[in-house]
Design a protein around this nucleic acid. Sequence first.
RNA 1: GUGCCCGUGGCGCAAUUGGAUAGCGCAUUUGAUUCCGAUUCAAAAGGCUGCAGGUUCAAGUCCUGUCGGGCGCGCCA
Length: 544
Amino acid sequence: MNQIEHALKENLKQAVLKAFEVETALEDIVIEVPKFKEHGDYSSNIAMRLTKILKSNPRMIAQNIIEQLDMSSIEKTEIAGAGFINLFLKKDVLTQVITTVLTEDELYGEAKLAHPISYNVEYVSANPTGDLHPGHARGAAIGDALTRIMKKAGFDVTREYYLNDAGNQINNMAKSLQARYLQACGLDIAVPEDGYHGKDLIDIANDLYAEIKDEYKNVPLEESVSYFRKVGLEKETEKLRNDLKLFRVEFDVWSSEQSLYDRGLVQKSLDTLIKNGHTYELDGALWLRTTEYGDDKDRVLIKSDGSYTYILPDIAYHLNKKERGYDKLVNLLGADHHGYIARLQAAFMSLGYKREDLMVDIIQMARMIKDGQEFKLSKRTGKAVALKDLIDEAGVDAVRYYFVSKAGDTHMDLDLDMANSKTNDNPVYYAQYAHARMCSILRQAELTECSDYDLIVHEKEIDLLKLIADFPQLIQDAAIARQPHIVCLFIQKLAASFHTFYGECTVLHAEEKLRQQRLALVKATQITLRNALSLIGVSAPEKM
RNA sequence: GUGCCCGUGGCGCAAUUGGAUAGCGCAUUUGAUUCCGAUUCAAAAGGCUGCAGGUUCAAGUCCUGUCGGGCGCGCCA
């Protein structure tokens, strides 16, 4: 319906020009699908928006506009409410979408942009020090769906994971793994207080012991720690990749923090900040004047002992992303790090970049519910709920769908019992079942192309058509707003609309000509639903 | 103490980013299948959008205050 909407907007624009000799930008003409069918297939509030300029009452303006409309694709118009212009389309404008969908197939909904903006989208970026927890899982599901949607919308997207493989937390991980290894050797060594107490390190240590036995048992701790650092990093990173892959989440680029040091980029960004005059020395430390750009206090870059704080490599990382040529950077950040946004953005601007080129979206924490009780999710207590546990409990499809179906900035519960249910109360199965139903119908009949769809007139058929036709625009909306849950809402509506249609309109038992046209409609619905599900990374089974 | 996020029928969430009568699912009550997959459909009931002001043609949405919940507030990462 991109095309239909575009044509309507152009139509309205010309009508406004003819009626009032006022030039309006196409993007200022807003048309929408009304909540209520009685309000037409589309409606526009353009008359109300023009009241200020024209100093006239909106219904009068609306009247003048509709008199100038090109009616070739419009059945009728109405003025309603405070001055809405409601547009009712001719039937064949809607039915032609069937042909479009059947022709484009898996490409239906996809947009091609002549000059796409390039986006770098970073998400998850969990430290390689333990298992992924549900908060990471939510970020992974949303980030993956978002990037699929943005790509479908025609954006140039790179999916990126920032691997914090340097810094204190890695040393802590190394010492913790070292302790676990020595425990495996039979020694009574405690994991450091500020170390990582998760079960994953025990598993890695046991595997390691099986492999190398006592090789490092009697090596002085200071000497062997670098070994455990290296091995721990490798194993933890591998585990991250595998878990994410199991969750159908993959990245185009894995960026290493350590390599920022190795390539001198940390030093370079430090030099830039100093050169730009955004730093000062105090109490033997070097500070970044982030308050200059709205942070609530300045931040230390170099501690008085000469070592760097964590923010410095992060600054280098963002500099590096911009220097790789991306127009826009998007970060999906866990809500527990929201306090970090202001200083990151301030640092970004200190490098000379524009605030709007770094967009940070918060992914709220999620509570896991099982048997009516909450799972606690602490990575360091050793009693963590991991991504893998979730997959075992409810399956990849259900977990992904649940996370994506709620807006990222809302606090949500994931009820694992519901995610396991195979009935109407589970939106994933509801949509998948609809898809299987469509495939079942299509299996039982030969589909032939129809030259026109004159018999598609039933109210439920038209409802389906409108949804299908809206899909391309919906993808644009979801991509621009960075709100993948919009696609899930669409999936629910489409599935529900199909089930209703199914109840009221027989396909296989209809008279031959109608049967063919309805088959084509079912096929178009099936393609659209499948394409929508694939944007969420959820399978569209042909049988269940 | 201070900053950010969230308060929408019993529960979980929507609301086309300021638009028309606040929707959907679950749960509750009632109906529908000799027929394309009942993992389905139809219907009823359920609301002063936490509270109080304000902004305008129009507020769940924006502003101010207030109450409640979550998360931050290191020369940790």
